[in-house]
Nucleic acid binder design. Structure first.
Lengths: 192, 192
DNA sequence: GATTGATTTGGACAATTGTCCTAATTGTGG
DNA sequence: CCACAATTAGGACAATTGTCCAAATCAATC
């Protein structure tokens, strides 16, 4: 088993702390304490806070890619792949109700901070959007694929937002069923 | 014309700065500079940062109530009232693309900060939810009114989120048309 | 015009922030 | 075992944070 490098540990902890507490509210000291190293050692790997954010976004992009690739190998049908994405809301319902969607909340915060890495974070959304578009195209939706992809993406973002506000698990399950129903209606409409 | 009190000015500026920059990232100094008063004078009106947040939430609740009441007097039909809510996305598209939805982003931030006023901010959402439910009930939707209200709320939140990320005005208009279409289909289904 | 209360000022305060540096400690190859 | 590079530790730093206070100024009343 490969030993986890200190750098990777820092990025992993920072990723988690940024998600649960927000980027701005998480300090160097918080991350160093989480990893169990001194702030000086920390500086050896990352000179500025933006560099950590950059590494965290890299990690999230890589993990998102891995997840999307995994669905493409595991689920043979595009419909099941899209359903797997939608059901992320159920699988992650506990952290979502507590902290929201990791991607959406990061993008929202960086937009307010007018941060340089704003667009890099938006690329994670771009990954989802492009992947969903690909699945809809595989289903036979030609010109509508992009719009449907953004529609599913927006819908799930909205569900995550309200889930955080109202902490209502039944609401999540109801909306997930609704999105799945919408998806099946679109599929039916394609074969007509 | 009634002179605007210093206190009201502080709350107004704080409201705007919290929206555009976030609660955590906005400092006492920022607000004082925005109003044009000294930090000491600031303290005369608000002892802690949480007190300002409390006042800002009060203001937002009052303004939301005013807006909802206005729609009820101006628009005679429930459908037009709901459409007025949906079209907030278009009316406020510029600030939404820059800073997101004021209510959604505040709730998301307070959730991460695990802030005491988290639930007070969620009450603003409660206002919208209850008002939408009332409109759907007036349309004749009995048991589904609550679910439809949350559905419209979640949908518009999702559109706001993606609008901030992709800065795509055409997307906003397309989704607003979609929600309106959905609304009309629900209305038709009620009369059958 | 004097008195009194409301308002405003500028700065003190301890704590925390991101950043940076030097010295000590590791581990590795010769 | 030694030399050298990689890594770690601990603290210095200037700036900023939220909080708080004493003194100055304003406005209204008698």
């Amino acid at each position: 088993m490969a030993a986890v490098s200190t750098r990777d540990q820092i990025v992993e902890i920072a990723d988690d702390l940024f998600y649960r507490g927000g980027f701005e509210a998480t300090s160097f000291a918080d991350i160093a304490a989480g990893v169990g190293i001194s702030r000086g050692n920390f500086y050896y790997y990352f000179k500025t806070k933006d560099e950590i954010l950059d590494a965290v976004i890299d990690r999230r992009i890589a993990r998102t890619r891995g997840m999307l690739d995994g669905w493409e190998t595991e689920a043979p049908e595009p419909r099941e792949r899209i359903v797997a994405f939608i059901e992320l809301l159920i699988a992650n319902r506990a952290p979502i109700m507590a902290y929201g969607c990791p991607v959406g909340t990061l993008c929202a915060e960086l937009a307010k901070l007018d941060h340089v890495h704003q667009e890099r974070a938006a690329d994670i959304f771009g990954l989802f959007a492009h992947w969903l578009e690909k699945q809809f195209r595989a289903l036979g939706a030609e010109e509508a694929a992009r719009e449907w992809a953004l529609h599913v993406l927006a819908w799930s973002q909205g569900v995550a937002s309200l889930a955080t506000v109202f902490k209502d698990e039944a609401f999540i399950r109801r909306e997930v069923a609704d999105i799945t129903g919408w998806l099946d209606r679109q599929i039916v409409s394609l074969s007509q």
